[in-house]
Design a binder for these strands. Structure first.
Ligand SMILES: [Mn+2]
Ligand SMILES: [Mn+2]
Ligand SMILES: [Zn+2]
Ligand SMILES: [Zn+2]
Lengths: 143, 143
DNA sequence: GTTGTAAAGATAATGATTCTTATTTAGGAA
DNA sequence: TTCCTAAATAAGAATCATTATCTTTACAAC
């Protein structure tokens, strides 16, 4: 996992720097699909003089190299996801909480559906569900 | 349709102003899920001195009153959708094009699936698919 | 040691959006 | 119709997430 990350960076010809490690670890720990600001705040304790620009730069690189993903929201702040597999998101209707939702059976159901029902003039690469609603067990990793 | 819009505004106790009408019509005409900037550019021809702040304000009101929806993207610009029914979106992997995708059969399939497979601690309100891929018939209403 | 290059830090700039304030207007009341 | 006033708009400043620029550092190859 941590070594996996190092390997992936090196395979892309990118250096394994303390900043990059710290940013990646922060995203893993902050498991509510953190914003850049969340990440900076988290890192600041052990790594007080990290530069804001560096964080944004590194996040872009991670996204480009597919070490993380961006998560779409209706807000004017980007959020990041270290979880790369085909999965879906539960959006809280009231708060900024976003939880992962994995469901292989559902993925297959949808894949089969689209195998039979092609979309004209469109080649599907990826399907993600945004499931909006309310969490009943309050909090957990709120924002 | 146009009167429907007026009624809905009045039902909410909101005044029907030329700006609001122009903004709503612009969103209908600009059928690629326009940004505020797209809307402003479109309106400027007939309505040269509309204020940017007004457009953002009005868009917020429309969203709040459910006359339009926001469309989630990975970009730092908001996009708006006049289409309110349960529908999905086809995101072009290369361009900013976003098309509506309506599929009642799919909606039912998914609804049935979740009727049988509840998500623990979560009450679903709405499900939207983001379908990413490539359009084969190039353009139509590009960005 | 010198050179070259990727990466990080500091900080200015950008661009979408929001806020503030003065002015105008829609539309109900008189 | 005319008046009145809360609601809405215009103009422009401010905010804030993100980008860009420029300098400095890390570190490897020569
Ligand atoms: Mn921006
Ligand atoms: Mn912004
Ligand atoms: Zn996720
Ligand atoms: Zn739509």
């Amino acid at each position: 996992m941590a070594t996996d990350f190092r390997n992936k960076l090196q395979a892309e010809g990118l250096k394994v720097t303390p900043q990059r490690v710290a940013i990646f670890e922060a995203i893993l720990r902050l498991n509510n699909h953190p914003t850049a600001e969340d990440i900076i705040a988290f890192i600041k304790t052990n790594h007080p003089n990290i530069s804001v620009g560096t964080v944004y730069k590194v996040l872009d690189i991670f996204v480009e190299k597919k070490l993380i993903q961006k998560v779409k929201t209706e807000k004017d702040v980007m959020r990041y996801d270290p979880f790369l597999s085909n999965h879906h998101h539960l959006y809280c209707a009231n708060t900024e909480r976003i939880e992962d939702y994995e469901d292989e059976k559902l993925n297959q159901l949808i894949a089969e559906y689209f195998k039979k029902n092609k979309i004209k003039n469109f080649k599907i690469q990826d399907i993600t569900l945004q499931i909006t609603g309310k969490f009943s067990s309050q909090n957990k990793s709120k924002k």
